[in-house]
Design a protein around this nucleic acid. Sequence first.
RNA 1: GGGGUGGUAGUUAAGUUGGUUAUAACGCCGGCCUGUCACGCCGGAGGCCGCGGGUUCAAGUCCCGUCCACCCCGCCA
Length: 627
Amino acid sequence: MARFIDELKRTHGCGALRDTNVGDEVVLFGWVHSRRDHGELIFIDLRDRDGITQVVFDPSVDGNPFAIGDQARGEWVLGIRGRVRSRGGNVNDKLATGRIEVLALEATVFNRAETPVFSIEDDIDTSEEKRLEHRYLDLRRPKLQRSLMTRSRIYHHTRSHFHDHGFVEVETPIFVKYTPGGARNFLVPARLNPGSFYALAESPQLFKQLLMVSGFDRYIQIVKCFRDEDLRGDRQPEFTQIDVEMSFVCQDDIFGIIEKLVVRLWKELLGVDLAERYPGGVFPRMQFDESMRRFGNDKPDMRFGLEHVDLTELVIEHSGGGIAMLTPIAEKFRSGAYRRDLPEEIVKAIRIPAAQAAGMSRTEIDRLEAFVKQMGAKGLARAKVGPESTGFEWQQSPMGKTATKEFVAAANAACGAVEGDLLLFQFGPEAMVHTVMANLRLHLGKKFGLIPQVGARSATHETGDWNFLWVVEPPLFERGDEGKGWVAAHHPFTRPHDQSLGHLETDPGKVLCYRYDLVLNGVELGGGSIRLHDPDVQKRVFEVLGIGQEQAQEKFGFLLQALRSGAPPHGGIALGLDRLAMLLTESESLRDVIAFPKTGKGADLMTGAPAGVTAEQLAELKVRSLV
RNA sequence: GGGGUGGUAGUUAAGUUGGUUAUAACGCCGGCCUGUCACGCCGGAGGCCGCGGGUUCAAGUCCCGUCCACCCCGCCA
């Protein structure tokens, strides 16, 4: 073995050799991907992160390497010295190296391998559980290797981009003081201070603002963040953000630097010129309000239609349109119990065009109803639009029996409905209707094949299916639990719009702010805000939130003091690097772009974390377990 | 916290109204094979049917509980 490695150095990766190398003597190191034994001739596909090369073992050339080829099994680690030769007519078009092969002249076994629990190939159909238990094997798969290498290039281009633009990279603490509000923190007992705890930072938010106060002007950090919340396919308890903050900037300045980063990443990693679709590399913007109205959420996937139609005004106008379930809602608006500019309950519809509606059975629509009930819907009202001769009446619909002709006509017009179309309705509390209808729209989009599937990359690039959008100007405040009081929709240091300042005391729900989210194909890539650096306005915001001077001091004292010590106007943004990597590699899950991810319960199936600790360890920390 | 789907050889799956020896493919082991590349041919081994309880003459199958994974709501930027 010493001869390999010490004397025989690797000359090529397993994906490197071509026609032009024929005749060269090479040294390859790699894993046995597959082995084909013809008795007096053995082929081994040798694999490393670079690719696959066919190695031939021929006893008539040399019996020693042949003996190794004969013993070798899947995933053994081999070293090969050999000569590149042409395959002649036996070309394999599936391999980049398929025109050549390496005739083994000398070979060594670095390591034998137990039979792997699953085969190391792309598109293997192995449960995620097994893959996570044997992650080191899973990570040998070419797709995951490519994804992690792409991720590495994201780090590189991101750092390079920001350094080119004069940003300073600063590390901020991971162990921080717990601050209430926002995401739940992980806690770490402080042994040197019994009874006290650190929190793991959910983001470097406060520190990056302090860095602006210190005069660093332009800050960048690629940073791990920690949130102890329930997980999803696109959420991990520890995740990575590209964290940015800038001084003396407005919203457009932030957008500009991020757009340039994104354009660069797409160019460098995918060879896609986003400027072709977005002239000047400027992404479109949409008001938060419009996004909610048309799509029901703040991260619209605009690659397909099926937009929402808000029928609330029509329902009010027609006093419920003769439909029993809608009449009480209309009445509440009429009586003034509900506000029309900030409605408590709304009525929305989605129109399914006749072409798709024709293929939907009663059972299928019932399944849709079950789907929306999972999300808090009481049911799923529906109506099939009849022929023109009937005045496009609503058929196969309980509502159709009592609805007034005028209301049906007006609703059809609003939806653009014609004969054969299917209308699906949802009404009730605004948040529920939005959630239900947003998810229903996505569900239908997938069902009807309107959303390009992952993996159809080459096709979608040409048709421009990288759909970027800035969602801007959301409200600063949301109603608190059970509609009582107001809470900050983002965080309380977001700057309100100047035009909104007048509403601050009188009508907080109407205050908009300089907050923004970058959305790509229905995925929230990141978000940020222009911060509030004016102590007077800050005080008024706290008052709306019911936070008194003392309380503010207690919670955010050091930041408030810093903001009074010469704070420049500033703002920033954080992009989810994992999600970015997921989209750039067209992976289906965040877990596929994180080397060692955790399950939905936050477990690492390979190491067994989290795990219990001894009573002694707890005692040293002065912590007692209740379990 | 709530809802859904799933758990059967190493892996992926099938398994009928509950019935005798639990199937298949791939992988693995042995043998044969000089142009394969999803190599081929012959033979073989391999199972706490997630775990615990119950019903029954009899449970992979029915019932209850529980654990794990994935998806969705709540939660979370």
